[in-house]
Design a protein around this nucleic acid. Structure first.
Length: 899
RNA sequence: GGGCAGUUAGCUCAGUUGGUAGAGCAUCGCCUUCACACGGCGGGGGUCACAGGUUCAAGUCCUGUACUGCCCACCA
C-alpha cells in the first residue's frame, strides 16, 4: 500500500507549503528564450493602499486559471505582478495618518511628505502582495513592478515628452472638475453622478431697459454673481423680443446680455437659462461660443471670490443661503420647486465636484481614440461582446483627458518654466539651462500626473519599455487582459490608445471583462455597507481552493456573481470529496506506480467507459477554458469527479482490488492514471489540493514525484474513445439504478440482499449482462442474479423495464404490494404520456414531411422503445395484480422493511 | 434622455448551432456499506415574467409590455 494522506484535508498547512515551494523554485519565472508560444497577462495592479477584496480574488483566480492552463498547453507563460501608486487614494491614506499626529502635508513640505508616502509604501505595500500570493496566483515574483519604479517612471516621462512634441499633450486654461476636498482636478470619468433631490429656484432678472423682467431657473443660485449672460432659444416666441437686450443680475445689478442659442431646452424650467461660464461645463461652451465674459466667483476652496462682490469670503453654501434670502427680499424670487437631478461627486472621497476654471494639462484623447476604436474587433476582441457598444460609445464621445493633478504623490509632470523668459520646457530629464535665454532660473511644474496615465502604459512599461528588452520582444502584445468591466474606460480604453500609439500594436489580443461580485441580495459589496465577504477570512475558514472553485464555478460570462459564504462552504465539500477519493486511491495502490497496461486494449467495460468519459472531459474542459467559459470548466470537473469517478468508477473497481493480480493491476493502473489526469485538469482551478495529492501518488520505481504545476495537459487518446461501450456501461448503470429505485420506493432496506431476475431483450444484451454480472451483483447489492429471458419469475415481483430488458425483483412474501402497484402505475403513466406525445408528432403530417430525416427517425425509435416498454410493463402489471388478488393482505413479511 | 443586461424548481444559477428543461444548495424518505455523514442511495418540486409572431417544432429566433439591476448623459 502506498503512503496515506491525513484523514482530513488541512488547507492552511498545504497552501503555505506549496506557495513557498513555487516561490523558492521560481516555478513561474519564464525564460524569454524558452520554446513555446508566448502567453502573457498583466495583472490589473491593485492599489498599494489596498487590501485584497473579493473582486481581486475573482480577478486573480480567473487569470491564474488561464495561466496555469496555458502552461499545461506548453505555452511560454508570463504573468507580471505589481501594484499601482494610486495617487489620490494613497495620498489620502497618508494624510489621514498625519492628521492623527496633528499635522498636515504642508507642515512637512513636499519632499518630506513624498518621503513619508514612500516609507508608508515600503511598510504596508507588501500586504497586498502577500494576499496575491495567498490566492495561489502563479505570478513571476522576480518581475514585480510598481508604477513609480524608476523604469516605469522613465516610460512615463518618455511618453509624456513624445506626446507633447506630437501636439497630443497640451497645457491650457479650461473648465475642469474640481474636488475641493482633494484639492485637485479630476478627469471626467472620475466624477460619479448621483441622483440628488434639490431645489429649482426661479429668479427674476430685471431687464436693463426697465421694461420688465425675464425669469430664469437655476439649481445653483450661489453662482448668480458669476452670470455673464441670459440665454434663450432663438425660436422661442416668448422671448424673441428680448434677444439682444440686456438684463440685470439680481441684487448685484450688473448688466449682462440676453443671447440666443439652440442649446437651450425650451421645455425645461422657464426656458431661460442663466449663463455662468466659469462654473458650468455647458455654460463654458456657451461663453466660448458667444465670447462672453468669464467671471470666477468660487475659488478652489469653495469660497466666494472678490468678484462675487458683497458675497466675497462666504463659503459657497453660505452664499447660496444668503443670496436666496437677498433675492427674496428684493421681491425677485418667483418660485421654488423640488427637482431631482444628478450631482457630480468625487469618485475617491464623494465630495460634490465643482466645475472650475484653471490651467491644466490635457491629453488629446479625441485624436487618439479613433485608432483605439478601429482596433476592435479587428486586432483585439472583447469578451463578452455586449461591451463592444459601450466601448465604442465612450470613444466616440470622448473629450480631452485632463491629466494634471494638484497633489504631491505621483509622477511629477516633466515640464519646467523659465522664470526669466517664460519659456516652457518639456523634457525627460531636468534641463540645466533655458534653451531660449540660457537662464538657470527654471521651475518644474508642481502638478503630478493622473494615476491612470502610468497605468495606461502598464502592458509595455512592465516589460521594460522604452528599452527594447527580450521581454518586450517576446511578450508584447500580451495575450489577454482579464479585468472587471468597471474599469473599461479608466484603464482598458486608455491602454488601447497608448499601446497602439507607442507600440504600433494593441496591448492585448483579447479582453475578458468579468463580472462584479455582489452579495446574496445582489448589492455591490462595500466596506461601508458591511456586506463584503473578505476573501482572507474565507481562505482561513475554507481554504483557498474552495474559494477559487466557487468563484470559477460562478464566473459565467456576462453575469454578475452573487456570492455568499454558504456557497463557498458548499464547494469546500467538493475539495474534501477529491481528497477522499485520493485517500481511497492511495489505500489501493502499490508503493510504486502500477505496472502499465495497454489502455487501448483494456477489455473490461467499466475501464473502457471511464477512459472514454475521461477523453470527453479532457476535450470539453480544454475548449471551455479556451473560450473563457470558466463556469463550464468548473462544472465539467465537478460532475466528472463526483458523479462519475467517485459515484461509479471507484465503486466498480472495489471488487477488482480483491481480485486476481491481473484484474487488480489493470484497475490500479487505470485508477492511478485517470486520477492523475483528473488532477491535471482540476489543477488550474484548485492548485493546492491537487498539487498535494499529486505529490502523494506513487510514481514509477526509481523516479521522483514531479511538480504538478509543470505537468503538461494530458494528451488525447483517440483509441480510448468508445461511445458504444460507454453506452453499454450506461445501460448497466440504469439497470442498477432501477433495482435501487425499487428497493427505495418499496421501503426495502438498502442493506437487504435482494434477488434479481433479468430478462434481456436479445442475445447481445444477455451477453453484456453476463459479462458484467459481478458488478451488478455488487452495486445493486444482490443475493442472487438470474440472467435468462426464459427464467420464470414469481408473479409477486416488483419490476421495471430498461432498454427493453425486464428487471424483476421477486418480493417473495410480501412487502407493501400496494406500494409496488402504485409505483408501477406511476412509471407506466410516465411512459404512456411520453408515448402519446411522440405519436402525436409522428402523426403530424407537417412534421413528417418537413422535419429533417434524422429527427424523424429519432422520434420513430423513441416511439418503438416506449411502446415496447409499455407492453412489457402492462404484462408485468397484470401478473402482479393477479398475485395481489391471490395473496390477499395477510402474508407475512419475509423481507426486512424499514421500521 | 440614451444604451446594456436580467426575469427558468423554495434559493443561486446553467441551458452551446431551435428537437419533449438541468446542476448545486434547500426539502422529503431510507442507510453507522471497510475513501468521504464535508458521506451514500432514492424521491418530490418548473404552463422557462407577460402578450403576440416566425416555424412541423421556441426557454432558445423576432416584435411589444411589465418589473429588476447596471452603465453612459450638458435639462440649467
Amino acid at each position: 500500500m502506498a503512503e496515506t494522506l491525513p484523514k482530513g484535508y488541512e488547507p492552511q498547512d498545504v497552501e503555505t507549503r506549496w506557495r513557498k515551494h513555487w516561490e523558492e523554485n521560481k516555478t513561474f519565472t519564464p525564460d524569454p528564450e524558452a520554446p513555446g508560444e508566448p502567453y502573457a497577462i498583466v495583472i490589473p495592479p491593485p492599489n498599494v493602499t489596498g487590501a485584497l477584496h473579493i473582486g481581486h480574488a475573482l480577478n486573480l483566480t480567473l487569470i491564474d486559471v488561464l495561466c496555469r492552463h496555458a502552461r499545461q498547453k506548453g505555452k511560454n507563460v508570463l504573468w507580471i505582478p505589481g501594484t499601482d501608486h494610486a495617487g489620490i487614494s494613497t495620498q489620502h491614506v497618508v494624510e489621514r495618518a498625519l492628521a492623527k499626529e496633528g499635522k498636515n502635508r504642508r507642515d512637512l513640505g513636499r519632499t518630506a511628505f513624498v518621503e513619508r508616502v514612500w516609507a508608508w509604501r515600503d511598510e504596508y505595500g507588501h500586504r497586498i502582495l502577500d494576499q496575491i500570493s495567498a490566492m495561489g496566483a502563479s505570478v513571476d515574483w522576480t518581475r514585480l513592478r510598481f508604477t513609480m519604479d524608476e523604469g516605469l517612471s522613465a516610460a512615463v516621462r518618455k511618453v509624456f515628452v513624445r506626446l507633447y512634441q506630437e501636439g497630443l499633450i497640451y497645457k491650457g486654461k479650461y473648465i475642469i472638475n474640481w474636488c475641493s476636498r482633494c484639492h485637485t482636478a479630476l478627469a471626467d470619468d472620475e466624477v460619479e453622478h448621483e441622483p440628488h433631490r434639490g431645489q429649482l429656484w426661479k429668479v427674476r432678472y430685471p431687464l436693463g431697459d426697465g421694461t420688465g423682467h425675464i425669469t430664469v431657473a437655476t439649481t445653483r443660485p450661489e453662482t448668480i454673481p458669476g452670470d455673464t449672460a441670459v440665454c434663450v432659444h432663438p425660436e422661442d416666441e416668448r422671448y424673441a423680443s428680448l434677444i439682444g437686450k440686456t438684463a440685470l443680475v439680481p441684487v448685484l445689478g450688473r448688466e449682462i446680455p440676453i443671447i440666443a442659442d439652440s442649446y437651450v431646452d425650451r421645455e425645461f424650467g422657464t426656458g431661460a437659462l442663466k449663463v455662468t461660464p466659469c462654473h458650468d461645463h455647458n455654460d463654458w461652451n456657451l461663453g466660448q461660443k458667444h465670447h462672453l465674459e468669464f467671471l470666477q466667483v468660487i475659488d478652489e476652496n469653495g469660497v466666494m471670490t472678490d468678484d462675487a462682490g458683497s458675497y466675497a469670503g462666504l463659503s459657497k453654501d453660505a452664499c447660496r443661503q444668503k443670496i436666496v434670502d437677498d433675492i427674496q427680499a428684493a421681491g425677485l424670487l418667483e418660485d421654488v420647486e423640488e427637482l431631482d437631478h444628478a450631482v457630480g461627486h468625487c469618485y475617491r472621497c464623494h465630495t460634490v465636484v465643482e466645475p472650475h476654471v484653471s490651467t491644466q494639462w490635457f491629453v488629446a484623447a479625441t485624436k487618439l481614440a479613433p485608432v483605439a476604436r478601429e482596433a476592435v474587433p479587428a486586432l483585439t476582441q472583447i469578451f463578452p461582446e455586449t461591451w463592444l457598444k459601450t466601448y465604442y460609445h465612450w470613444l466616440d464621445t470622448i473629450r480631452d483627458w485632463c491629466i494634471s493633478r494638484q497633489i504631491w504623490w505621483g509622477h511629477r509632470i516633466p515640464a519646467w518654466t523659465c522664470k526669466d523668459c517664460g519659456e516652457l520646457i518639456v523634457a525627460e530629464q531636468a534641463p540645466e539651462t533655458c534653451p531660449q535665454c540660457a537662464g538657470h532660473n527654471l521651475k518644474q511644474e508642481e502638478d503630478v500626473l493622473d494615476t491612470w496615465f502610468s497605468s495606461a502604459l502598464w502592458p509595455f512599461s512592465t516589460l521594460g519599455w522604452p528599452e527594447n528588452t527580450r521581454d518586450v520582444q517576446r511578450w508584447y502584445p500580451t495575450t489577454v487582459l482579464v479585468t472587471g468591466f468597471d474599469i473599461l474606460f479608466f484603464w482598458v480604453a486608455r491602454m488601447m490608445m497608448m499601446g497602439l500609439h507607442f507600440m504600433g500594436k494593441p496591448p492585448f489580443g483579447h479582453v475578458y471583462l468579468h463580472a462584479l461580485v455582489r452579495d446574496a441580495q445582489g448589492h455591490k459589496m462595500s466596506k461601508s455597507a458591511g456586506n463584503g465577504i473578505d476573501p482572507r477570512e474565507m481562505i482561513a475558514k475554507y481554504g483557498c481552493d474552495a474559494l477559487r472553485f466557487t468563484l470559477t464555478a460562478f464566473a459565467a460570462m456576462g453575469r454578475d456573481i452573487r456570492l455568499s459564504e454558504d456557497r463557498i462552504e458548499g464547494y469546500r465539500h467538493f475539495i474534501n470529496k477529491l481528497w477522499n477519493a485520493a485517500r481511497f486511491a492511495l489505500m489501493n495502490l502499490p508503493e510504486n506506480a502500477p505496472r502499465p497496461v495497454n489502455l487501448e486494449t483494456v477489455s473490461e467495460l467499466h475501464h473502457q467507459w471511464l477512459l472514454h468519459r475521461l477523453e470527453m472531459v479532457k476535450c470539453d474542459m480544454d475548449r471551455a477554458l479556451e473560450e473563457y467559459r470558466f463556469n463550464d470548466a468548473a462544472q465539467l470537473g465537478y460532475k466528472f469527479l463526483w458523479n462519475e469517478f467517485c459515484d461509479w468508477y471507484l465503486e466498480l473497481i472495489k471488487p477488482d482490488m480483491q481480485s486476481d493480480d491481473r484484474r487488480r493491476n489493470t484497475a490500479q493502473y487505470v485508477l492511478w492514471l485517470s486520477l492523475r489526469e483528473i488532477l491535471v485538469l482540476l489543477h488550474p482551478i484548485i492548485p493546492f489540493v491537487t498539487a498535494e495529492i499529486w505529490a502523494a501518488l506513487p510514481v514509477p520505481a526509481g523516479s521522483t514525484a514531479t511538480d504538478l504545476a509543470l505537468e503538461p495537459y494530458p494528451r488525447q487518446r483517440p483509441a480510448c474513445q468508445r461511445p458504444t461501450e460507454a453506452a453499454h456501461m450506461e445501460f448497466l448503470q440504469n439497470t442498477i439504478v432501477a433495482v435501487r429505485t425499487i428497493k427505495a420506493e418499496l421501503g426495502i432496506s438498502p442493506g437487504h440482499k435482494a434477488s434479481l431476475i433479468l430478462h434481456p431483450v436479445d442475445a447481445a444484451q444477455n451477453a453484456l449482462l453476463e459479462e458484467n454480472r459481478s458488478c451488478i451483483v455488487t452495486l445493486a447489492r444482490l443475493e442472487t442474479l438470474t440472467i435468462d429471458a426464459t427464467a420464470p419469475a414469481p408473479r409477486a415481483s416488483a419490476s421495471a423495464v430498461v432498454d427493453g430488458c425486464q428487471v424483476i425483483v421477486p418480493l417473495k412474501g410480501m412487502v407493501d404490494l400496494h406500494a409496488e402497484l402504485a409505483r408501477l402505475d406511476k412509471e407506466l403513466a410516465k411512459v404512456e404520456n411520453d408515448l402519446v406525445l411522440t405519436n402525436k408528432k409522428l402523426h403530424n403530417e407537417s412534421f413528417m414531411s418537413r422535419a429533417p430525416a434524422d429527427v424523424v427517425n429519432r422520434e420513430r425509435e423513441r416511439a418503438e422503445k416506449l411502446l415496447d416498454a409499455k407492453d412489457k410493463m402492462l404484462k408485468l402489471r397484470a401478473r402482479f395484480a393477479e398475485a395481489l388478488e391471490d395473496d390477499g393482505q395477510s402474508s407475512s413479511c419475509e423481507v426486512p422493511q424499514k421500521p
